[in-house]
Design a protein around this nucleic acid. Structure first.
Lengths: 343, 343
DNA sequence: CCATACTCCTAAAACGTTTTTGTTATATTA
DNA sequence: TAATATAACAAAAACGTTTTAGGAGTATGG
């Protein structure tokens, strides 16, 4: 039904190869010929059939992106913003994005194999890197190009973008310390994630700088979901050594802490200070607006695609490993503690 | 680098066509032969090269889904949950999902043309249908199968799933009326969206049933984002005829109203009642939990894919047009008004 | 023993594009 | 005028899969 080169050949009287060459801008095509061919192509809304182009070129012009999910439905708005960036970057270069979901655990690697095997995609964007990440090992083995959002260990040469989350969390924690908080809780992320290590370090370093002892009883390991944030914060708020501030590994967790705070009647920003991480739009529009590290998620998405694009087209990649400085945004979810607790 | 039929042919001594037929389960292949071939295929991790398969079959085994965005980054978590459903449904049938973003306005149709032209996808899932939807016209014209989340007008035979949002909003509004509210605001969605019409009708019908006059001054047209929800609610709360309850077109808008309420010191569920629509997980984990219509988003995503799958494979579609009854969930964001206002 | 049926395999074509190589006709140069 | 360069087009191959058509060999039946 759709128009093919063959049809244009029949209509214009030129050969298929001339049609193709004319449309692709080859020089040895007569100007008048090209005009006629272009006109016919426009008339019939010609668009090259991708499957054929892909087979011929050995490329799909598609990249893969898997959204991490917890359970069936829960995911982080962070990934839509990222996906939007990746998608818009891709569209600008006439690439497409194949999206799937990747469950935590065993299924994750399978999900990646599924889109990589059979050459469904030319390359992959990977997020939430793990210490010793099987996906990276696999992609290296099968020679599929990829870029990471986040670092990995023991792989010195892989391309990535990461936020310096050690210093990010450190800044936020110091901010709370400067405000006078001395008992600062921390809801962190699963241990296997690389950024957990950095964020934990940032938290500890800030405490150390202010001579405060690390107190494991007010540090909880969450899973980056709002629901778990709420549950763990509820626990924290029930403890006798209730913290006056809570640092969270991401915004979604922080919003869970908001719920818990509301529930027990704590006023956010005075009774309890809360900080997030990521800078999703929900953080900005929460009340009070959430103190957080503003990651330029959309722009990072575009940049990730552009890095991958260069890898795929053998263009030189000047900055293969990019570590972005944290941009803290101090909003009203953090303030001085209601009554200064002992120091 | 990856293994191809040719390689397996060389290794086993059979022809390419026999290899293919053996792996595809054709009956006229000797059992022992098949065993050997399967073994070799497994040994080399053979997976058919999709571009070739696609070209040969005239199908991509890919469906398209475009996420509506407002501005650069803002989108609704609703669409991740939906995408997760679509993606999982697709993966179960060895289909993939090509995802892009579609801006509001002129660019939208272009975004659809982009993935449909050139046969990038076999079919499309469309959301947020408009009255007189150009996308539907286009897809019908180029004979690309599609399914809708939402109805359209003047196209009696197109396949869709929709929630009965007239009755959904009606139920919520009636719930508020029963609680004693008489001044009920409404933050609705852009007029061109089909579901706006239904939701508006539901609101009006409920009022009428209780003999309350429609008051345009407490009805605002939003854009389904949290930010606009917050802004419009702030307006509402500043008015002298401040409503005691606000019905919202979706959960995200309702969460914006939460922010506005917090900001002016209104207690949600008593000073001000708020209802949403969709049942995203943020609604459940907000405080207080949001009264809303629980759309089984993930399941709808799966079902949408399965409908499209049947269309693509010429299987009979028993229920071509599905209208799901609304499932209201009454939570603590709605309660009786603080002091009964005149009735 | 011939004809027929059955089993198991292979050759070849096709999908539509891009690119390499070649060909023809015309123009240029010696 | 003959040799050579140039311009403009076309033929053909290739990408890897699936499927159609058919062929060789063996078994079955009369």
């Amino acid at each position: 039904m759709p128009t093919r080169l063959k049809d244009l050949a029949k209509e214009t009287g030129y050969s298929v190869s001339t049609i193709s060459r004319a449309l692709l801008g080859y020089k040895d095509v007569n100007a008048e010929t090209r005009r006629r061919i272009v006109k016919a192509a426009q008339k019939h809304d010609y668009y090259p059939y991708q499957s054929a182009r892909q087979l011929r070129a050995g490329k799909t012009y598609i990249i893969g992106f898997l959204i991490p999910t917890y359970g069936l439905r829960f995911s982080d708005p962070f990934f839509i913003e990222l996906l939007t960036g990746i998608g818009d970057g891709a569209a600008a270069k006439n690439y497409d994005v194949l999206v799937g979901t990747s469950p935590e655990g065993e299924g994750e690697l399978e999900a990646y194999k599924r889109i990589v095997a059979g050459g469904r995609v030319d390359g992959v964007v990977i997020t939430r890197t793990k210490e010793d990440d099987k996906r990276v090992d696999y992609l290296l083995k099968v020679h599929t190009p990829f870029v990471l959002l986040g670092r990995v260990f023991n792989k010195p040469n892989v391309p990535y973008i990461d936020i310096d989350s050690k210093n990010g969390i450190k800044l936020l924690t110091e901010h709370l310390l400067k405000l006078g908080h001395r008992k600062i809780g921390f809801i962190t992320s699963p241990e296997e994630l690389v950024f957990s290590r950095y964020r934990n370090e940032g938290y500890r370093e800030a405490l150390k700088k202010y001579g405060i002892k690390y107190d494991a009883s007010i540090v909880k390991i969450g899973d980056l979901t709002q629901e778990t944030g709420r549950k763990l914060a509820t626990e924290l708020f029930r403890q006798k050594n209730r913290p006056s501030a809570v640092v969270c590994a991401n915004d979604l967790t922080a919003l869970g802490v908001y719920s818990a705070a509301h529930q027990v009647g704590l006023e956010i920003g005075s009774d309890i200070s809360i900080s997030g991480y990521d800078g999703i739009s929900l953080a900005e529009n929460a009340h009070p607006p959430l103190t957080t590290i503003q990651v330029p998620i959309y722009e990072v998405g575009i940049k990730l695609f552009n890095m991958l694009y260069k890898l795929l087209n053998n263009e030189p990649l000047e900055n293969k490993q990019i570590l972005l400085p944290p941009q803290p945004i101090y909003r009203n979810s953090t303030g001085p503690p209601r009554k200064a607790d002992g120091h």
